[in-house]
């Protein structure tokens, strides 16, 4: 478990350093995620008989954090309670914009995904043959 914590924190730290150093528009943790993903892909390629992630401490640590991801938004969420006045200050327009736009985005994203997936889902096999 100690190594798992060190890996997660280390990737985030390197991500933060890269984000600041190169003035990237992406937050450090997102770069850290890309780095860890690249490392895991590399490990799987080098050691084809490597044990499955789920049995490793890193797999367990990641599963624990992601299973409780909702908890991590509670402190920031509590902060916005002080700001609810600004939501209502602009009349119903802002609330309607939030609800309407979120619903529309969910619908458009899911429908486009399914429509394109229907055309491409069986394609990889045919591509490999050609």
């Amino acid at each position: 478990m100690l190594h798992a914590i060190l890996i997660l924190l280390g990737c985030q730290l390197v991500g933060e350093v890269l984000a600041r150093g190169l003035a990237l528009p992406v937050p450090g943790p997102v770069i850290g995620m890309a780095l860890l993903f690249a490392a895991l892909q590399g490990r799987a390629r080098l050691r084809t008989k490597a044990v499955d992630m789920g049995t490793l401490p890193l797999g367990a640590a990641a599963a624990f954090l992601l299973a409780n991801l909702s908890l991590l938004f509670v402190p920031a969420g509590t902060g916005i309670i002080r700001q609810t006045a600004v939501l209502t200050a602009h009349g119903p327009g802002l609330i309607i914009a939030l609800v309407g736009s979120t619903a529309l985005t969910l619908i458009v994203t899911a429908l486009v995904f399914v429509a394109v997936a229907r055309r491409t889902d069986s394609k990889p096999e045919t591509e490999r043959k050609s």
């Binding site: 997660l8 990737c11 985030q12 943790p29 995620m33 499955d52 992630m53 990641a62 991801l69």
Partner: peptide
């Protein structure tokens, strides 16, 4: 609460694990 808030960073990094699997 900052100790919980801080974990958002490592949790974001941890998204790499299900992505890899």
């Amino acid at each position: 609460a900052q100790f919980v808030h801080f974990l958002l960073g490592p949790a974001t990094v941890a998204l790499a694990v299900p992505l890899h699997r």
